[in-house]
Amino acid sequence: MRAAINSSLVITFIVVGISFTSHIAYAGQETFDNLSAPVDTWKRPVERGLVSGATIQKIPPLNFILFMSVLLGGAIVAKKVFGKNFSQKAFIGLMAWIIFFLFWELAFHYRLLTTTLIAAPTDILWKFNFHIQQGYLQMHVIATLNRFFVAFAMAVILAIPFGIIAGISNKLYEWVAPSLNFLRMIPPPAILPFLIILFGIGEAPAIFVITLGAFFPIFISIIRGIHSTETSHCEVIETLGGSKIDVLVHAIFPSAIPALFTGLRLGFSVGWLVLISAEAVAIDRGVGFIVQSKFDAPLVFMGLVIICVIGLVIDFSLKWGERFFGSPNRETMAV
């Protein structure tokens, strides 16, 4: 029962994710195509457009420094007042970030750093403001999310049945394990040029490689989870007159569910890495494409911030799922 609820939750999460992002992706693309803002060859808004359109003011560095100092003071006061609700660890983490940004901006203010090789926080905020107003940022984020959800869903949908088959039948696993091991060790981006020739330029090669990257961790985790089933549980069910289906549903699936969530997290980290690689090599839309804009440091940092935020959100939700559905004393692997 619990296994059924868990798997239906996962499937619902994925289906809603796909439909949501793909709906917005097409809408966002249309909006972007209808934009009258001047764009360059790669459909990036040209900043000269600012002259004719709305002017976006840069945040004055001193205001930013002042704001950060106020935040710092506020955090300390909040720690004093709500001391019990604030964990020491979270407080130190927050303080570290505030001080980090404060000193980063101050270094630019006193010209210890220059804007050629690295960007000031106010510059990054200004880029954010500009690209959100132009609709450029939304388009890239939605394109990435859509691509990732489709590929990840395909990986999960393929890995669950194949993992269960390979996990249950030891004979089959023995035959195919060496060739799968060879395929696993080929970095997915390496076959990207070949896939571009086979499928043509576009979404298909990228989605294929992301699926390949996310598939193997999930697949192997499910196999491990099934192998970790205690034989006594299966024997008890068989002794009490249960059929093979009963063993599968009541003993093997429940022990594979925690491993499945560990695999999802591992698969996410590899899939996310391959996604950024594929967007750097083969695609002209997505956050991985933003961070490849060479010689525009503020734009690259903007892309890094977005990648970080999306990655943290997905990672935390998967970690929460692992903690919620997984067994409590299971070792989690740091990735």
């Binding site: 950024i276 991985g288 961070v291 440091a297 890094l304 970080c308």
Partner: peptide, 14 residues
Amino acid sequence: RVIPAPAWLALSIL
């Protein structure tokens, strides 16, 4: 940790 290494490529060339 959640920023994949290839994302730093342009900056590392810089």
